[in-house]
């Protein structure tokens, strides 16, 4: 088990280095001239040149990368081109709100998805199952921002029970969470339904039924317990999907998180900020995948020898 964990962590580190290289190359090397962007269209060549030297942009790209990574190891993500403040401090003030939002969205997916999964599994192939499954298909096809705007209009503007966006406590969190929950819950529902139906066909569940255990007891004690394992695994991976698309919810609900920060930085072509947010979000994705794999290694020893 120890070797498995170490190997898995090693892989995660390789992936993170890969991300940093690709992101750095594409963000720093591809644009023709960051110095020109910073200086603006009317700056003299001398000014542009000075900026280039100050930022180390005249160095070969691999040297720039090593410098960046060296700074990164000291917790320094560079300085914003536009605001001239440390990227780290900008990001750290936005991490809390994004974590809050992600957690809210994630919990809402579970709150909607798991009961529907249990319900459709218990009533599989009946009309209610077909109807809910059809709705689920529409749910995963909805653009999260469009649904968000419709809900904002309905429950923020017409019936004013929720704020029209903004960052804050639970009150501000409910609408974006419901929005994301609706578009993401279907995955949990389908997964739970199919694993539950699998488990229901197992001999030990038949045995429990044969013993005369109540349907309720069979479902909650025997079926659900075993069917939830793949759901938990998926939940870990799903956090990655959530963070990858967080910018759309934040923009729609005017939520002041990392997605918004990155979005504004992209508008300003503020490359150190973009690079920092991309890297940090990727770290979280890799971290959650790692946790899932390690937990799974404990639950199911077979995968360790893959």
């Amino acid at each position: 088990m120890g070797a498995y964990i170490i190997r898995r962590i090693g892989q995660a580190i390789i992936v993170l280095i890969g991300i940093s290289i690709i992101a750095f190359l594409l963000l720093y090397a591809v644009p023709a001239d960051p110095a020109r962007i910073i200086a603006g269209p009317h700056a003299t060549p001398d000014v542009v040149n000075q900026i280039r030297i100050n930022l180390g942009l005249n160095l070969p790209i691999w040297e720039q990368y090593l410098k960046y990574m060296g700074n990164l190891l000291h917790g320094n993500l560079g300085t914003s081109y536009i605001f001239h403040t440390s990227v780290m401090s900008q990001i750290s003030s936005r991490m809390g709100p994004t974590a809050e939002l992600a957690l809210g969205c994630w919990i809402m997916e579970l709150i909607i998805g798991i009961p529907l999964g249990i319900y459709t599994a218990r009533h599989a192939n009946k009309v209610r199952d077909v109807v809910i499954s059809a709705l689920a298909l529409i749910g995963i096809s909805l653009p999260v921002y469009w649904l968000g705007l419709l809900l904002l209009f309905a429950f923020g503007f017409k019936i004013q029970i929720f704020p029209l966006g903004g960052t804050g406590g639970i009150y501000y969190l409910i609408l974006p969470s419901i929005t994301y929950g609706i578009t993401g819950a279907a995955y949990y529902m389908r997964l739970l339904k199919s694993t539950m139906l699998d488990v229901m066909n197992q001999d030990y569940v038949r045995t429990a039924r044969a013993k005369g255990a109540s349907e309720r007891r069979v479902i909650y004690r025997h079926v659900l317990r075993n069917a939830l394992i793949p759901v938990i695994t998926f939940a870990g991976i799903d956090i990655g999907t959530l963070l990858a698309g967080v910018v759309l919810i934040e923009e729609t609900f005017n939520w002041n998180g990392m997605g918004m920060l990155a979005y504004q930085a992209i508008g300003n072509q503020d490359i150190p900020v973009i690079m920092g947010t991309v890297l940090l979000l990727a770290v979280f994705v890799v971290l959650f995948n790692l946790i899932v794999d390690i937990v799974y290694g404990f639950v199911d020893p077979r995968i360790r020898y893959d």
């Binding site: 992936v15 690709i22 992101a23 963070l243 910018v247 990155a262 890799v286």
Partner: peptide, 15 residues
């Protein structure tokens, strides 16, 4: 793994 770990939309946006 690397490609899958990128914050897809954000990175596409930046590119």
């Amino acid at each position: 793994d690397t490609v899958l770990a990128f914050p897809f939309l954000l990175f596409a946006l930046a590119l």
